[in-house]
Amino acid sequence: MPRALYVAAALAIALLVLPLVGLVARVQWGTVVTDATSPSALSALGLSLLTATVATAVCLLVGVPLALVIARSGPRLAGALRAVVTVPLVLPPMVGGIALLFLLGRNGALGGALTALGIQLPFTTAAVVIAQAFVALPFLVLTIEGTMRSVGTDYEQVAGTLGAGRWTTFRRVTLPLAAPGLVAGTVLCFARALGEFGATAIFAGNAEGVTRTMPLAIYTAFNGAGVSQGSAIALSLLLLIVALLLLVFVRGWRPGATR
């Protein structure tokens, strides 16, 4: 390995770590607790945890079946489905928010029908969940799909020849064997939902207590509207800690299924 590559690698680490160090250096430790526990901060944190949890649950409910379908498809269909799943991943979230608004907004293709039924989605807490699920679902699907594909169908076939029906096989063989991917995918999905900003801002807005999640609260605070910059930093610190905790959880979790 050429020495120069070490220098480049060090630069990469610096790029990733130094901003976070800079953030922590700016924390005003005297007021950080009061800043982070102000009513508006706590409301944003509670809303974030609630919406990210619901969004993750929704993603699991529909994402695990989709991952299985892709994992069991032939190369062509799998490639096409994977491309569809990847689009929200590479799309700027802002664009996703606009797309959601055009679909589910009052004059949207589906939104019109919903409005007729008396359902209004944009600028509600439900809209936050939808926006988060839209951007986070690809992480969950792609991670779980990879695990399910590498596990293969051999064990499922064995289960079949032992007399296990499809649901039994799914519950007792397919899911447990995909456990490492399930955990990693769920954590990634939750983290992405927690940090989601662009699509939420466009599709759900920035109403305190209803749609102002942590990232929106940080943005608002940073722009000096309502709360101080100090609380923006405090909230960022809080979000950073949550992210680190998630990371520790994934690392600390040893997959019993692959022993």
Partner: peptide
């Protein structure tokens, strides 16, 4: 008839014990 309803068992060269059980 699908494998699970045939009453036909299969023992391969690889034991394929379920690793999580």
């Amino acid at each position: 008839v699908p494998p699970e309803k045939r009453g036909i068992g299969l023992l391969g060269q690889d034991p394929r014990l379920f690793p999580h059980l």
